[in-house]
């Protein structure tokens, strides 16, 4: 049986993209196969390991559980979008910098998803507590680090990079 393919438009890392795909194709596969953004990984295919985490409209999602049709019109950010200007001499994202120096990545396969979860966390909690870090990363399984260096990386990134916003003047 063969179904109708749809043209689906969305924005990935700031770039408008259109893909032609079966609507039930997973966003993960569209990113990896159609858009060749292979930074996003598959670890379990059931929303358990978080390796495929991306941000969609400002929320963290497991891209293996999103049928691409539901991404129509969405703003999507993948690991490739964290440091978009790297190739033209731009800097790493503060989280990437911190993971590099604090040992937050070992084998690297959970790293892209972990970075997206950490980015989401820091956006919601610019100065996260240990409990918030643990909760924010609990959906991203890492088998190498025992998580400790990852927690240290997030703390370092939050300490050095979080904007010190003053609350609105009253």
């Amino acid at each position: 049986m063969s179904t109708r393919w749809d043209s689906i438009r969305f924005t990935v890392n700031g770039q408008p993209r259109t893909v032609h795909a079966p609507p039930m194709k997973r966003l993960l596969d569209v990113l990896r196969e159609d858009l060749h953004l292979t930074g996003t990984k598959e670890g379990c295919g059931e929303g358990e390991c978080g390796s495929c985490s991306v941000r969609m409209n400002g929320e963290l999602v497991n891209s293996c559980l999103v049928p691409v049709l539901q991404a129509e019109g969405a703003q999507i950010q993948t690991v490739e979008g964290l440091a978009p200007d790297l190739d033209s001499g731009g800097a790493l994202h503060p989280l990437q910098e911190a993971f590099l120096h604090c040992g937050g990545a070992q084998c690297g396969i959970c790293t892209p998803g972990m970075l997206m979860a950490a980015a989401q966390l820091i956006e919601r909690h610019p100065h996260p507590s240990q409990a918030e870090i643990r909760e924010g990363l609990a959906g991203n399984l890492c088998r190498c680090t025992g998580f400790a260096r990852i927690f240290a990386s997030v703390v370092a990134a939050a300490t050095h990079a979080a904007p010190e916003q003053e609350p609105d003047a009253r």
Partner: peptide, 21 residues
């Protein structure tokens, strides 16, 4: 010394090529 992991940046920016990539 705590030098940065040799292949660290590739892994952090999604450039590292695993077999399924």
């Amino acid at each position: 010394a705590p030098v940065p992991r040799k292949e660290g940046i590739d892994k952090l920016v999604g450039r590292a090529q695993y077999v399924d990539d």
